[in-house]
Write a protein that binds this DNA or RNA. Structure first.
Lengths: 102, 102
DNA sequence: TGATAATATACCAGATATGACATATTATCG
DNA sequence: CGATAATATGTCATATCTGGTATATTATCA
């Protein structure tokens, strides 16, 4: 539906399928992105609660500051797996992750 | 803790870290695997409810029968992303996925 | 039992994600 | 304002994931 949103997402690297819905995202795509954003934001929230910098968190997770930034921004090169693993490493539980998603 | 379980997981391709817990899985690792298994099983359940074969489902998802089998078995080469995308394509919602996980 | 459908396992080439690094941009504070 | 910490963005080699294919194993049923 929203051309600007589509362009914005694509410019960030998202590949927007057009089989069923030429402009805009399919229901599955947008739900998937919503889930990732929810996880991203939860990660940023948790980090700030603990007063850690991205660099500090990166070291705890054997990652890099730039990747933490991308995780928290919902960058398309970040997988749900990585977000979930990061949250678990920060002490999240299945229940809290479920709550974040649902 | 359980040596056999560790060997079993490793033989299936899981890489069991040993920084904090030489034998057995760290809390994060086992929780992550639990989540994947829950998603795997939900996918298998949904497919069977719909009386689809793995081959039929594979075609709907632009995937392959072998990958569906691996998804349903919790194979370590299957990402949470793929499982979530498959569930969404089968009509799952954020809420139902959250319930599956949590 | 044998035939056939369904599922599982093994492998690979191409696609995607990851950490690392460099650099840019944006706070924060004197 | 300048200095410095924090966050964001771009790029890339390597690692991991994915669909496809082949083949093996396991149901299902006549």
């Amino acid at each position: 539906m929203d051309k600007n949103k589509k362009r914005q997402l694509e410019s960030k690297g998202y590949r927007v399928g057009d089989t069923k819905d030429f402009l805009g995202l399919s229901q599955e795509q947008s739900t998937y992105i919503e889930m990732k954003l929810a996880l991203s934001q939860a990660l940023a929230r948790k980090r700030k609660q603990r007063r850690l910098t991205q660099l500090e968190l990166a070291r705890k997770l054997n990652s890099s500051q730039s990747r933490i930034a991308k995780m928290e921004k919902g960058d398309p090169t970040v997988s749900v797996d990585l977000l979930v693993k990061a949250l678990l490493a920060m002490g999240a539980t299945k229940k809290s992750i479920a709550k974040t998603i649902g």
